[in-house]
Design a protein around this nucleic acid. Structure first.
Lengths: 339, 339
DNA sequence: CTGAAAGCGCTTACAG
DNA sequence: CTGAAAGCGCTTACAG
């Protein structure tokens, strides 16, 4: 068992086939017809390549050709269906173009974001999709300096093309449904997200717009930007519901992670949480099974990624432009069939 | 705005610094002391590198050095916490070693598995972690031929080192708890997984061992290998509970995706499903919030990956060896704090 | 202390 | 129709 026997190179093939490196290269790249190579030679080379299990060294090829065949993606983490969906679609689109997908997560740590972006750029990825980072602009600019094509998902900036979910429209549609049969003076709140965040800001605007339509106004403390963590959301809910007074009867929850906080709160205090109507700007199959009236929204990950690659396939820069993709409301969707 | 200006090379640096390519290389690699380079020169080079934003071309470096700085991982998909956890730990261990992580999913499609493995090998990944494929051996052998170090997760084979969860022990522990207060003649079933699958087989053995301890036996139709899809599990449950006779009072569910089928069944037919006790060989935060008495098990993704890298760091082959990592039972675990 | 040179494995313009 | 040669951007043994 010759362990780790050295891989055959193009030179080995040439020697074995009794021809030149150039000719082998032509054959392997399918350009031999153009070079009027003897078909017999071509056949011999191909057979030998198969026999020896020849695989071209991608780094040598990339070095010579000046491209890497790598496509990078940056996400905060893998723990929810939104990012999982983005990743899976990214992978398949990249593969369809002969690119190897490299997906890295940052845990929303700006330091890791920086480091990871630099590393992907060092690898000369031919495309970088950026989703859910602190500040896309610094990454966008890094890419521009190094000649890497970069696109932002759901987080626009002036320095790159961006594709976003219709956050305003989605939140408004969710809120409309949420308020449909509610008493006219019922309290409704918005929960989750951080200060001055693009998507959150728009979702709040959509929430308020739908409130407006019903002549409702959001009071102090009705917009609860408690962050994304389940624990923080749980705590915010404890505060809201355990304080005597006017508990909310409806809420729009800003993300599936914040919704997780609601789920644990509901489990712990069904007495307090069972009467509230809930809508969530995201979808999860288990969350959809909780016995609380929950309206969910599924971002259209497939189209989000499709638009990224359409931009990539076209050669235009379009920095600062934003392409908006509508999300879908989930009422009782069984979800796709999979393993 | 000079778009895509060519990146500076080591030669550019050498010219700008008025020194040779060799010296620049020494300086950049921190080996200049060893070569007794003039400290002033070193400083000049470093300053220039920073100023020009020099980044070494990783492909050239890799070609010369014969290594890629890439670490690959193959998983079926990203849609549950088990794989998400494996991925996140893989990424951070890889990063800690200066490797760029490349994670690709296959949707459990053998054709994609083959293609993806071949591509990673072509990229000369220095390590390949294989989790949840149809047949690891063909990938293991491919890697061995090409000199790529390859390790299997939860799916052992004779052709590589493997690290697995204690499937037998975990299933037995879950089943023991499941049966604790159950009537002596109650029916308990096992749900999910496929025929002749390593992990499933062991979990069934664990299930049966715990049954044995209580002098219970599993009858025909009590081991339901309906696959992993939520829809299939849902259907299997319909058949089980809607058939008149002896509905199960307890079940061990083989994976979180099959559990998803239980969740939807429970939502649709709470009358039938609410009395059953459930344990699941996997964990999900929302699933843990369902108002059904559910006992969950969390595989120790952190240690699973740690063992992979420990093997990688050591240089031994250890083909065919199996390292067993115990899982943890989740009774009421809030999970880690995160965004 | 410094630099010229070989070579990693490819691709392709160029000369025959 | 075929092959020798240059060159992609690095690293490092070697000669001075």
């Amino acid at each position: 068992m010759s362990k780790t026997r050295k891989r055959p190179t193009i030179r080995d093939l040439a020697e074995a086939a009794g021809t030149s490196v150039s000719t082998v290269s032509f054959v392997l790249n399918g350009t031999w017809q153009k070079h009027r190579t003897n078909p017999e030679t071509a056949e011999r080379v191909l057979a030998l390549a198969a026999e020896l299990g020849y695989q071209a060294n991608q780094r040598a090829r990339a070095l010579r050709l000046g491209r890497s065949s790598l496509a990078g993606m940056i996400i905060p983490h893998h723990r929810n269906r939104f990012f999982a969906g983005l990743v899976e679609n990214f992978e398949s689109e990249a593969r369809a173009r002969g690119l190897v997908p490299i997906v890295v997560s940052t845990q929303r740590d700006p330091e890791i974001e920086r480091q990871v972006a630099a590393r992907l750029v060092m690898q000369d990825v031919e495309l970088l999709v950026v989703a859910g980072v602190e500040n896309p602009s610094s990454i966008n600019r890094l890419c521009r300096n190094k000649g890497v094509r970069c696109v932002n998902v759901d987080l626009p900036g002036p320095d790159a093309f961006s594709v976003v979910t219709d956050n305003f429209g989605g939140a408004r549609a969710l809120t409309r449904r949420l308020l449909e049969d509610l008493a006219p003076d019922a309290r409704a709140i918005f929960l989750g997200g951080r200060e001055s965040e693009y998507a959150t800001d728009l979702r709040i605007k959509g929430f308020l717009a739908a409130m407006q339509e019903k002549n409702l106004t959001a009071g102090d403390g009705d917009i609860v930007r408690c962050g994304y963590s389940p624990v923080a959301a749980h705590k915010a809910l404890s505060d809201l519901f355990e304080t005597p007074g006017n508990p909310p009867l409806a809420m729009l929850i800003n993300s599936i992670t914040a919704f997780e906080g609601f789920a644990t709160f509901w489990r712990d205090r069904p007495d307090l949480a069972s009467n509230v109507r809930v809508a969530c700007f995201d979808w999860d199959p288990f969350a959809a099974c909780l016995p609380v009236k929950t309206l969910m929204l599924r971002q259209d990950v497939e189209n989000l990624i499709k638009v990224c690659f359409a931009w990539f396939d076209g050669e235009e820069e379009r920095a600062g432009e934003i392409s908006v993709v509508p999300p879908r409301l989930i009422i009782d969707d069984p979800g796709p069939e999979y393993d």
